[in-house]
Amino acid sequence: MVHTDRPALTRRPLTWVLLGAALALLIAGITAPHALLIAAGLILAGLIGLNRTQ
Rank of each mutant, 00 (worst) to 15 (best):
M1E: 14
V2Q: 13
V2I: 13
V2S: 14
T4P: 12
T4R: 13
T4Y: 10
D5W: 09
R6S: 13
R6T: 11
P7Y: 10
A8R: 14
T10F: 15
R11L: 15
R11I: 07
R12G: 05
R12Y: 09
L14H: 11
W16V: 07
V17I: 09
V17E: 03
L18S: 04
L18F: 03
L18V: 02
L18I: 07
L18P: 00
L18G: 04
L19H: 00
L19G: 03
L19A: 01
L19S: 01
G20P: 00
A21H: 04
A22V: 02
L23K: 01
L23E: 05
L23P: 00
A24C: 07
L25I: 01
L25F: 09
L26A: 09
L26S: 07
L26K: 06
L26V: 05
I27Q: 01
A28D: 00
A28N: 07
A28H: 01
A28I: 03
A28P: 01
G29R: 03
G29A: 00
G29T: 00
I30W: 03
I30F: 05
I30S: 01
P33A: 05
P33T: 04
P33G: 07
P33S: 01
P33L: 02
A35F: 13
A35C: 06
L36F: 08
L36D: 06
L37G: 05
L37C: 04
L37I: 02
A39G: 06
G41R: 00
L42Y: 06
L42G: 12
I43W: 14
I43Q: 08
I43T: 12
I43C: 08
L44M: 11
L44Q: 04
L44G: 04
A45I: 05
G46D: 06
L47F: 13
L47Q: 09
I48A: 11
G49S: 12
N51C: 09
N51W: 15
R52C: 09
R52V: 07
R52T: 06
T53N: 12
T53I: 11
